[in-house]
């Protein structure tokens, strides 16, 4: 029996949301609806999380952020898209800066519509995500020594649009205080890197 569904930890990220669904997600943790009695904790660290609650739709700025959070979560993981903006773009679907709902960048297990989604609906969505998590855990237990096969790993990378195969370059030597290293910024970057980077956040693949 899988204990992972007994006390799932969630990580919450807001990608271009108006905050309505975010405060309802936080309201689930507070004494009125109180999901902490089920052992659900809102953690700030993706590496500790089981369920990714995402609100708001995707725009060009936060594509890489959402992907990085998703990649850092260990398997098995589930994603719940909270609110109609995360499901499909909502009332902002025709805006010039909106790409669409969350499923344009990462696979989603549960969609919770609403504007703003009510805490009861959010809790219902999390419970269904637990079901999905349970199935994934059972599928993982069939192969006890590896989480994914090599072919599945390549397929995962393909689906997320990342280059496959090549491992990250290992650091050749220790970096000591006082060394001059090139600072990489976090976030998306315009294609020509000759632009002055010190005043904007350029992109970097952040080594986790």
């Amino acid at each position: 029996m899988s204990y992972i569904t007994k006390s799932p930890w969630i990580i919450h990220y807001d990608g271009s949301s108006c905050n309505g669904c975010d405060i309802e997600v936080l309201a689930c943790l507070t004494p009125m609806y109180d999901v902490e009695r089920f052992g659900i904790i809102n953690t700030g660290n993706p590496k500790h999380a089981d369920i990714f609650l995402i609100t708001g739709s995707i725009n060009e700025q936060n594509v890489s952020v959402v992907k990085q959070i998703y990649e850092q979560m260990p398997e098995p993981k589930a994603v719940a898209a909270i609110g109609i903006c995360a499901t499909s773009g909502g009332v902002f679907k025709d805006c010039y800066n909106i790409m669409g709902g969350v499923d344009t960048v990462i696979p989603v297990d549960v969609y919770v519509p609403g504007c703003a989604a009510r805490p009861e609906a959010i809790i219902d969505g999390v419970v269904r995500a637990l079901g999905a998590l349970d199935e994934k855990k059972k599928a993982m237990e069939k192969r006890p020594h590896e989480t994914t096969t090599a072919a599945e790993a390549v397929a995962n990378l393909d689906r997320m649009g990342l280059p496959d195969g090549a491992p990250p370059e290992p650091l050749e030597e220790l970096v000591l205080p006082g060394d001059d290293i090139e600072v990489k910024y976090f976030g998306t970057q315009p294609d020509d890197e000759s632009a002055d980077d010190s005043k904007n956040s350029g992109s970097g693949k952040e080594e986790a």
């Binding site: 271009s16 739709s57 725009n59 700025q61 936060n62 952020v65 805006c95 909106i98 956040s201």
Partner: peptide, 8 residues
């Protein structure tokens, strides 16, 4: 640096 929530 802002622009993560810009919906236009």
């Amino acid at each position: 640096s802002i622009g993560f929530i810009h919906r236009g």
